[in-house]
């Protein structure tokens, strides 16, 4: 370059100003979108809960910290991101929806697993995932695959879940769902069935 070197202060100021302007722009965008994003998240969660427990009329998030800590402990590697008590139309408790994060091929998949009061799976729905498009997505989008879990018996064991047919070519993604269901079963056995909801 032929021109004289720029003064250090100009260098520093130009980067600082760029960063400030960019930060202001992002803050403005965030202010516009934050409410809508929170709303979309809530809607998506609601939809997943409904899909996992079609018979439930309403859900209420469990806030008891001891129960949540106990659930987290019995779930092992799977993260418990929320437990929701499900109520039927007459307001009676009819089960739980568990939101769990289970490790797949592309990071954590967020699943919602519905359990009735006897510990039977009422349904499994996928809230979000980052599996390989075309391979792992076959697992996450497959109604047939997810429906298999509703046929598990009450108080199902790890072996029961293992026996569920995986989708070929997507073993890790299939396992993510299976691990999530296994963890939900463990949470039911250790925490929910004991009334500590």
């Amino acid at each position: 370059m032929t021109h004289a070197p720029t003064k250090p202060i100009t260098l520093i100021m130009s980067v600082v100003v760029t960063c400030l302007v960019a930060a202001a722009g992002l803050a403005a965008t965030y202010a516009v979108t934050a409410d809508r994003i929170a709303e979309q998240d809530r809607l998506a969660q609601e939809k997943s809960l409904k899909a996992a427990m079609p018979d439930a009329a309403s859900f209420e998030q469990v806030t008891d910290e001891d129960a949540l800590a106990a659930a987290e402990a019995s779930a092992g590697d799977v993260k418990v991101n929320g437990i929701f008590t499900a109520f039927d139309e007459s307001g009676d408790e009819m089960g739980w929806g568990l939101r769990v994060g289970s490790r797949g091929y592309g990071g954590y998949a967020q699943l919602v697993i519905g359990l009735d009061t006897s510990g039977k799976v009422t349904g499994v729905s996928v809230l979000s995932h980052a599996e390989t498009p075309g391979l792992g997505t076959k697992v996450m989008d497959s109604v047939e695959f997810l429906a298999q879990f509703s046929e598990l018996p009450e108080a199902f064991t790890v072996a029961d879940v293992k026996a569920v047919d995986s989708i070929s070519g997507a073993t890790k993604s299939s396992r993510a769902v299976k691990n999530g269901v296994t963890a939900a079963g463990a949470v039911y056995a250790d925490v929910l069935s004991k009334g500590g909801e």
Binding site: T6, T10, L11, S14, V15, T18, C19, A22
Partner: peptide
């Protein structure tokens, strides 16, 4: 400035 153009591009 030429010297800091890359960081500025990346921020933008």
């Amino acid at each position: 400035p030429d010297e800091v153009r890359i960081p500025i591009f990346i921020v933008i």
